[in-house]
């Protein structure tokens, strides 16, 4: 981080009160967070984030490294539960259910809120088994034919079907990086989630594979709510409807993507998208 960024950061946090723009929505809300704090041991990683994600919306989360955007994303399907020292307060509501409620089953939650990771991580099993795994463990299908259909549909939706239909029984690890990532997306949508979280899904891919994933995100947004963390501002500009800018654990600014990238209101947002730091 440059001196400049540090100065502007301190200047801003002196009087930081709330997020610029409109983090909440009036209707068609799929997921909403209220006053979410995340601590790793003694260190606070997220400070009081209020944010809504609409139905069939693509929300991009941007910000410099270590700003907490990935941490925030992972709170949305409780992936942070696996980290012992991680503590989360505040409310995260998915379709009216608080996901941190004691009655909320994390297995159910993750079937509703799927996740695609930074590095393609197919299971070292066949392509078919990768996609079939989710429906199988949740008992979503009862017959083999039904499973075949689910697998095919998921692979088609992830626009990878044509490339793999003749080799479904071959190991998924033999696919290229871009194909693996699309397979991971297929695997996620095979359990028919409401929300798909994507944590820098293209950072390990070449530009062509990235373009295909971006196209795919646009197609998927017709049926799913997507929250995507990305380091590429061009990607955020291309794929998202709304953009949220995080800085050192705070949600600085939220708004329509066009507006954020053309007329940011907050100085930090402006500094970041004009490339002065980050």
């Amino acid at each position: 981080m440059t001196t400049l960024a540090k100065d502007s950061m301190e200047a801003v946090f002196e009087g930081w009160t709330s997020t610029v723009g409109k983090p909440t929505m009036d209707s068609d809300v799929r997921m909403s967070t209220r006053n979410v704090d995340v601590h790793y041991g003694d260190k606070q990683a997220i400070y009081g984030v209020d944010l809504d994600i609409g139905k069939n919306e693509v929300l991009a989360m941007i910000g410099p490294s270590g700003c907490g955007k990935s941490t925030f994303l992972r709170t949305l399907n409780r992936m942070n539960d696996t980290i012992d020292i991680c503590r989360i307060t505040g409310d995260i509501i998915l379709d009216g259910d608080n996901i941190y409620d004691k009655h909320m089953d994390v297995v159910n939650l993750r079937a509703r809120v799927g996740m695609v990771f930074q590095k393609p991580n197919p299971f070292p099993k066949s392509i078919y088994d990768n996609v079939a795994y989710g429906p199988k463990i949740h008992g979503l299908v009862t017959r083999r034919a039904e499973l075949d259909e689910v697998v095919e549909t998921a692979l088609r939706k992830a626009s990878i079907w044509d490339e793999v239909k003749d080799r479904l029984d071959q190991p998924a690890t033999g696919l290229s990086g871009g194909q693996q990532q699309r397979l991971c997306i297929a695997r996620t949508i095979a359990v028919s989630p409401e929300v798909i979280l994507m944590d820098e899904p293209c950072s390990a891919l070449d530009p062509i594979a990235t373009a295909r994933i971006e196209e795919l995100i646009a197609e998927l947004s017709e049926n799913y709510t997507i929250a995507i963390v990305t380091h590429s501002m061009q990607q955020a500009a291309r794929v998202s409807h709304r953009t949220a800018y995080f800085h050192l654990g705070r949600l600085i600014e939220v708004g329509k993507t066009d507006k954020i990238f053309t007329a940011p209101e907050h100085k930090l947002t402006e500094d970041y998208i004009t490339g002065r730091f980050g």
Partner: peptide, 27 residues
């Protein structure tokens, strides 16, 4: 066993036991 495999299983909604039995143990 790479942590990414565990995350993949957990992210799909596998329970911890399923994650261990289906993925970690075979690998």
């Amino acid at each position: 066993v790479p942590p990414s495999i565990r995350e993949a299983a957990l992210g799909l909604g596998a329970s911890k036991v399923q994650m261990v039995m289906h993925h970690v143990l075979p690998l």
